[in-house]
């Protein structure tokens, strides 16, 4: 029964969404919007779980004085401090807003900027000509990079058109083919859950 009841609930919820989304009479009742709101409320409740998990993991780090425990302490102070501050003055409050704009945003941008270095090192690893596929990848990448950069069109007039052709024709068609297969795959997964064949989300290895 531990798995059967959640499975029945999943199937009923799935059928409800199909009926509420496609059938006109049910759509008029606005149940789909209500269900979406219920989901949002439940999602907000789940946040408490996240806070509890972080508190337990980092609380243990502090309690047992594990290495780098000081960062756990900073994390807990920031999490609860910012939480209390925003409850007191909302996220639009002067201090909360200042912290968001001057600490959170620049830190976020800094981590994002790391991507440039990681992409460079990944490109170096990927473009080492070892296999036939890597050679094709490298040649195409050089053509497209030269086409996108101003130097390509300066060296050979019309080069950016070649690069655009690569992006618009072989690249787009391959991407759309993959996307089509992926959509059908997601369809199949949804159907398997509706029929109660897929049970991994209820725990264990799924069988």
């Amino acid at each position: 029964m531990r798995k059967e009841i959640p499975m029945i609930l999943t199937v009923l919820a799935g059928l409800f969404v199909i009926v509420a989304k496609y059938l006109f009479a049910v759509d008029q009742l606005g149940w789909f919007t209500t269900a979406n709101r219920m989901y949002q409320v439940m999602y907000a409740m789940f946040f408490l779980l996240g806070v509890v998990s972080l508190t337990i993991v980092h609380g243990k780090n502090i309690q047992r004085r594990r290495s780098k425990w000081i960062y756990s302490l900073i994390l807990l102070i920031c999490m609860y401090g910012y939480g209390i501050l925003t409850i007191q003055q909302t996220v639009e409050g002067p201090q909360a807003n200042w912290i968001y704009n001057n600490i959170l945003n620049p830190t976020d941008a800094t981590i994002f900027a790391l991507l440039a270095f990681f992409i460079t090192s990944a490109a170096y690893r990927a473009f080492r000509v070892r296999t036939r596929e890597a050679t094709v990848l490298m040649i195409t990448a050089v053509i497209v990079m030269l086409g996108v950069a101003p130097i390509g069109d300066t060296l050979i007039h019309g080069w950016n058109n070649v690069a655009r052709w690569f992006m618009d024709v072989p690249n787009s068609s391959a991407m759309r083919g993959i996307a089509l297969g992926a959509y059908l795959g997601s369809f199949a997964v949804a159907l398997r859950i509706l029929l109660g064949l897929e049970r991994a989300h209820l725990g264990g290895a799924g069988q």
Binding site: I178, A182, L184, G185, L191, R192, L197, E198
Partner: peptide, 23 residues
């Protein structure tokens, strides 16, 4: 694994004919 291959994973791992049928 590219695109739809990830959706076939449960059928592939379990080797269940019914799940394979959906794929």
């Amino acid at each position: 694994l590219i695109g739809e291959e990830i959706y076939a994973a449960s059928a592939y791992i379990s080797k269940e004919p019914i799940l394979t049928g959906t794929v």
